[in-house]
Design a protein around this nucleic acid. Structure first.
Lengths: 205, 205
DNA sequence: CAATGATGTAAAAGCCGTTCACATGGGCTT
DNA sequence: AAGCCCATGTGAACGGCTTTTACATCATTG
């Protein structure tokens, strides 16, 4: 079990990814604070100094996890939106569920992305890949806004930020996989759906 | 400078509070992860082992900070709501601003409360004092709901959770004091106010 | 005034992050 | 095919942090 495939050689061959995987595992088990550079190295079967050949320091590893998380997140949202098929309303609802599902099932990624206080400049591409996720939300909002009469259209970015904020708020406060922070009379999914319904109603949709 | 008032005696006299204050300072400076038991002890002018007379471990200190934060938070929200004076709408808007203001100005408390992943059972009163804050939101929602015709009244708890989620989402994503995570075309306050306006509109208010 | 329990100290063990000099060997040049 | 070079991994070491344990100090109280 220690070192898959027996690590036949002095060089690992794929240490960078192995460390990120190990980090994910450890974050899932013990939270982002519990993530230890030494632990990750151990899980990958290398010495404690080896990770420094791939990451400047512990925070850089966390930033890489966050980076990868944002990519998967953007992919998941893009797939859920599916260009607004078969119609924007249905696709929008799918999008909301996908958001919470990601937060629930990919807790390690999600916490690395939003709650491990990774400085956005830790990875110089972090902000960009983060924007990709926001762009999906924004695109969805634009499609919905298009259904409104011209005089009553809100700014798409603002609407996207509202959607994101409520989604993140719910995910962050109630939507965690295992350690639910608070008992609720409804599921996070239901809460978000109801909230979005009211919000869209308020826009006139 | 080291040890205010010269620490005239072997015993500190007020170490517990001094440690919490030091923790706040350190969290504000270096984030909840940067908070170190040893640092807090140093700031209070005592040995690294002294804190253990007052807190089971480092996490217990963090939990106490969170606890105190929830109390101040609930107080701030209660004051802002001011029993709905002069009218629920005005008071509700004040409430929103107070929420973001707390997140902005009391960043150390806020992060300890919501982003330091303190397990809710770390302090056995934590959940209760957290509920006190929610209760204020709920009360405000009830006052607003009362303005609606009987057939169109949503559950107050659900509405409170929506309000909380959007507020927390905005505070968490954009509303930090110094290290703003993302550039916005509008202030967090404006974003929340606009979001709440749309939401209330959706409810029929 | 002396005992006692609460509070603080000193020292030590163990872990972690990080650095540095050194080892290894995969891949490119010739 | 031989040999060199550099990316990658190792081992040892330093300092800092957490936590425990035995001991020191002192405020209270009977």
């Amino acid at each position: 079990m220690s070192g898959r495939r027996g690590r036949r050689s002095y060089h690992h061959g794929n240490l960078r990814e192995a460390l990120i995987d190990a980090a994910l595992q450890l974050i899932a088990e013990k939270g982002p604070t519990g993530l230890t550079f030494a632990d990750a190295a151990r899980a990958a079967g290398v010495s404690p100094a080896a990770p420094y050949r791939h990451f400047a320091d512990r925070d850089a590893l966390l930033a890489s996890v966050a980076h990868q998380g944002f990519e998967k997140f953007a992919d998941a949202l893009t797939a859920a939106w599916d260009d607004g098929q078969p119609n924007p309303r249905t696709a929008f609802r799918r999008l909301g569920h996908a958001y919470l599902e990601f937060a629930r099932n990919e807790t390690a990624y999600y916490t690395a992305m939003f709650e491990a206080q990774v400085p956005p400049d830790a990875d110089r591409e972090l902000a960009r890949v983060g924007d990709r996720a926001l762009a999906v939300l924004r695109q969805a909002c634009e499609a919905l806004i298009a259904e409104l009469p011209e005089g009553k259209r809100p700014p798409a970015l603002m609407m996207a930020l509202h959607v994101w904020s409520m989604s993140h708020g719910i995910a962050s406060l109630f939507g965690r996989g295992d350690a639910a922070r608070r008992k609720l009379p409804m599921s996070p999914d239901e809460l978000l759906e109801a909230g979005m319904l009211v919000y869209l109603q308020g826009l006139g949709l």
